[in-house]
Design a protein around this nucleic acid. Structure first.
Lengths: 224, 224
DNA sequence: ACAATGCTTCGGCTATCATCGAAGCATGAA
DNA sequence: TTCATGCTTCGATGATAGCCGAAGCATTGT
């Protein structure tokens, strides 16, 4: 049953594209498999029904990832068997280095730095993340007020959550969204730490030298 | 590629039937999968080309087994994934206990006791087996002369090998065939250790109480 | 020698399923 | 609101591949 799912070439291409553990949108998977979005949609439904992949809705995108490390393991095993008398398959990811580094995701920071920021917050227990939901801890509130002059009052909004995990396009891991994510990006801009690129339509975020230093001091990886 | 092989229901049934590590004939596999021999032949060719199974020719039968424990492992993994939202599949083997215990295979001993005998011979280096070919060692010749009054002269035959590994029907492991296998069965009969069952067409071999004891003394498992 | 058994090859039929065009929803942007 | 984008559903087409009947080898048994 499940083997027939992996058996189809198009689906196999999709699954191998997901083997790195990151998530891809339906369109990307379609392109990866060399088929139209309609066909891909059908395949993705079947893979999801078979429990091989899990969707994550993100705005008008739909990200898919392998449900489990176990799934990846079985796929790895199949690839191993195929390697005895067959071929292989690989692919890479996006391109623009600046985009991968830092960019705007709607109204908050995304890219390498965005992911790094959320990682740092989580590591220091300034936020608590369960699945997709993120909660700001008391220590987190103090941190924001102290270092970024952001008070909890500024984060209330009629129909938008304060914190939210947003799947990152280039890193394929979560970064911080919600009113907090937007507030922080706004503050970075106000503090002249960073600014959106001037060229129209660009989503690149350019950090100043000073801003990068400050950002690293707050959310750097060698931080503890 | 290899996944599509496992994907087909008929082939999947065949493979799961082979999961116990024993070998099955093409006809048995056809019946297992609920298809005609012609169709099964096609499937088996593909599975062999894919490196999942290996054939062993045995007279006019053709036994197939999984090439590798690795193959079984991957199949096990697939079954595990399927178990999260699907069904299972099992089967059993032959039936008659007496047949499984000891029976005639052409002119030599087969069944549990036959396999046990070859195992014992191999263990004590009385024979050397490479693949399908078995050679009698010097120690083996001495052993035969001493305990069973079988001299090497009795084993020569124009167009038949002295020793040969024969795939066992019920145990699905090798037992001893060739002129040596035939000579030993003949000797067992002469010594009144065993006799073919009286009912016509039966292949069952009945051991006497004394014979069973002697046999165990020579080829018993707790032997060393 | 001949017959019987086990398996394979060949040819044609059929059904399943991947594929895409077109249209419909949902979400975000202006 | 209106438009654009991402994805899904529907319907029809087409090709791949499983399936079996008939015939052909190969091996064993008489």
């Amino acid at each position: 049953m499940v083997a027939s799912l992996v058996g189809d070439p198009a689906r196999a291409n999709m699954l191998t594209a997901l083997m790195n553990g990151r998530a891809l949108t339906a369109s990307e998977l379609a392109q990866e498999a060399g088929i139209t979005p309609q066909t891909a949609s059908s395949h993705l439904s079947k893979l999801e029904a078979g429990g091989l992949i899990e969707p994550e809705k993100q705005g008008r995108h739909r990200y898919y990832r392998l449900t489990d490390p176990d799934v990846a393991g079985v796929l790895e095993g199949l690839a191993g068997l195929a390697a005895r008398a067959g071929h292989m398959r690989v692919r890479t990811g996006p391109k623009d280095p600046a985009l991968r580094r830092a960019r705007i995701c709607y109204d908050h920071l995304a890219g390498d730095l965005g992911v790094q920021m959320l990682d740092s917050l989580r590591e220091r227990r300034l936020v608590k993340q369960k699945k997709q939901d993120i909660e700001l801890t008391v220590e987190g509130e103090r941190f924001l007020a102290r270092h970024l002059q952001i008070s909890p009052d500024m984060l209330t909004h009629p129909r938008r959550p304060v914190c939210k995990a947003c799947l990152d396009w280039s890193e394929r891991r979560h970064h911080l969204a919600g009113t907090l994510g937007a507030a922080m990006m706004k503050r970075f801009t106000e503090l002249k730490w960073a600014a959106r690129d001037a060229t129209p339509g660009s989503r690149v975020v350019n950090f100043t030298r000073a801003g990068e230093k400050q950002f690293a001091a707050l959310f750097g990886s060698g931080h503890e």
